[in-house]
Amino acid sequence: MNTSKVFAHLQLTRPANVVTAIADIIAGFAIAGMGVYLTSFSNESGHLIDLAWLVLSTIGLYAGGVAFNDVFDADIDAVERPERPIPSGRASIRSASTMAFLLLVLGVLAAAMVSMTSAIIAFAVALCAVLYDYWGKHQHFFGPINMGLCRTGNLLLGVSVVPELISEYAFIGLIPLVFVAAITMISRGEVHGKNRKALFGGLLMYITIVAGILLLAYSFGGKLIEVIPFVVLFVYMVFPPLVKAIQKQDPKLIGKAVKAAVISLIIVNASLSAAFAGWLYGLMVLILLPISLWLARKFAVT
């Protein structure tokens, strides 16, 4: 396989987005009360090794899931986005499918190295991803929820480092679910525009996310002050491009709003991390933001 084809297959995995998935795992690790091991770089009880396995798992799950998205969209992309790897001929459907499948298998096997609970969650995320790629994204109501469930599962995959805490903190998965559902709704206007209702709906859901994060910070550990700077950054990142998209209804502006929101998943995770493990841990998660932004200049986000 030549360099061009390798790059094309790497494009299929959306590297900038994969970094946001890693942030999900690190945030889940904090929610499980394991943040101290990362901030002190202590591998006592092997928790940092577990974190590494879960990071590898989410890389496989996310990269495999988005690669399958291009496989199932090959015919549509041939018309609307012919520059993408498959319709441009730089990657074949067969090679892309094989890579995507192997990545999903890697995701499940890596999670199994932590616990059976982690493996089950990883398998569920893989199923949700393929379901969305093949069917969910064509459903007006269930599609955004389907996509949100992938992120919810990913956050809980991080929490699964302590399996018995899954049931206690499962409700926190509503935050990525609502946020990703909002992004998915908004993204439907990237090609043709004119989706004002979806944009307004996304705006209301973003406001709900901000309120939910602040409530969590106040309720768990009293770290509201530590979380506020992260929330302010989130508002700065996602609200201005979305307001411009609402005003102009232009597909390019909608695309920018979607891109900003996808990258801001890292800020959501940094906020959740700060709420449970303090500002320093949140800052460690936020370090992933410039990495994702750099990759977003090299590879497509949507």
Score class of each variant (00 low, 15 high):
P82D: 03
G107K: 07
V55L: 15
G60N: 09
A23L: 09
T98A: 14
G46V: 08
M99P: 04
A100I: 08
A119W: 11
S97T: 15
D24A: 08
S118A: 15
G64M: 09
M116K: 13
V36L: 14
R84Q: 04
G35Y: 01
Y62T: 00
G28M: 06
F101V: 13
E80L: 12
A119N: 11
N17S: 14
V79L: 13
G107H: 04
H47K: 08
I59W: 11
A67W: 04
G46D: 12
S42L: 03
V114S: 11
V36E: 14
S40D: 13
S95W: 07
G64C: 09
V55S: 12
L103W: 12
P82L: 04
N17F: 06
A119K: 12
I59L: 15
L104A: 08
N43F: 07
S92L: 05
A78V: 01
G107Y: 05
G35K: 01
R81G: 03
A67R: 05
L48P: 00
V19C: 12
V108T: 03
Y37L: 13
A16S: 13
L106E: 11
F101E: 01
M116Y: 14
F29Q: 02
G33Y: 00
W53D: 00
A74K: 11
S92F: 02
L106M: 14
T98D: 04
A27C: 05
W53R: 00
R84G: 06
V105F: 07
D24E: 08
H47F: 15
H47L: 11
G35I: 04
D50Q: 09
S42C: 04
V36A: 14
S40A: 13
A78P: 00
A30I: 02
L51R: 00
F72I: 07
G46L: 10
I59E: 10
L48D: 05
A110K: 09
G35F: 06
T98Q: 09
S45G: 00
P87H: 02
H47E: 09
G65E: 07
I86K: 05
A100S: 13
G89M: 02
E83I: 04
F29A: 08
P87N: 01
